[in-house]
Design a protein around this nucleic acid. Structure first.
Length: 210
DNA sequence: ACATTAAGTGATT
DNA sequence: AATCACTTAATGT
């Protein structure tokens, strides 16, 4: 674990901090589709991503989901931070998008490190900032972009976090993530295909033009 | 061969 | 952009 840790965070944190993380952190490997955080959960540890990606979802009162953003390697979950500090329930759901390797840090530690390590503090503030920016982007996307643009952005994001041009999802799943109906997705995908931006297969979509 | 699930399409609101 | 109704195609048993 120390090796993976150094590779991913070595340039950010001093050795002493890396040692501490190595000592108290719990290394985990999660397979795709694992629920990390559920809405209403109290969070007692925060994840440091080593490899893979996590998608962050919001849910409405009817149980319909909506994607907020993805978290990739080198990131942490800002929502976790605000939950920990306020000792409140999670407002979001986190599900692994791909097979993921991460380290869980107990909340107490992460709080005490804030004062102890400058680099840690910077890291936390930076990821808070990054997440805030992404949230604003997400809001723009939902509020101002049309469905076809949202879909295209979704495909790009998805391709990015998977490091692959081929995404395997059904139209139905996309519809769920984007909070629309399957028929709409099918139609929009069709037009994207005609424009030569993607290729459609069953359970697979290939991105041609990013 | 049959049932199930994914995807495509026209029409309507 | 959403919903309905229906068709077609791919996959599993």
């Amino acid at each position: 674990m120390l090796k993976a840790l150094t590779e991913q965070y070595g340039y950010l944190f001093e050795d002493e901090l890396l040692q501490e993380i190595n000592k108290v952190g719990i290394y985990k490997e999660l397979s795709e589709g694992t629920k990390l955080i559920e809405i209403g959960d109290y969070i007692k540890s925060m994840p440091l991503l080593i490899e893979g990606a996590i998608k962050i979802l919001r849910e409405d009162d009817k149980g319909d989901e909506l994607i907020l953003y993805f978290i990739e390697q080198g990131d942490t979950c800002a929502m976790t931070l605000s939950c920990c500090i306020g000792n409140s329930k999670s407002e979001i759901r986190a599900i692994t998008e791909t097979d993921t390797k991460l380290i869980m840090i107990p909340v107490e530690k992460m709080e005490s490190w804030l004062g102890k390590y400058k680099t840690w503090q910077q890291f936390i503030l930076q990821s808070y900032h990054d997440r805030m920016t992404e949230l604003l982007e997400a809001i723009d996307t939902i509020a101002f972009l049309k469905m076809d643009e949202r879909l295209f952005k979704y495909l790009k994001d998805k391709a990015m976090v998977n490091h692959s041009d081929v995404i395997h999802v059904t139209h139905k799943q996309i519809a769920g993530d984007l909070h629309t109906s399957r028929v709409v997705i099918s139609r929009l995908l069709k037009t994207l295909e005609i424009k030569g931006k993607i290729e459609l297969y069953r359970n697979n979509i290939k991105i041609i033009d990013l």
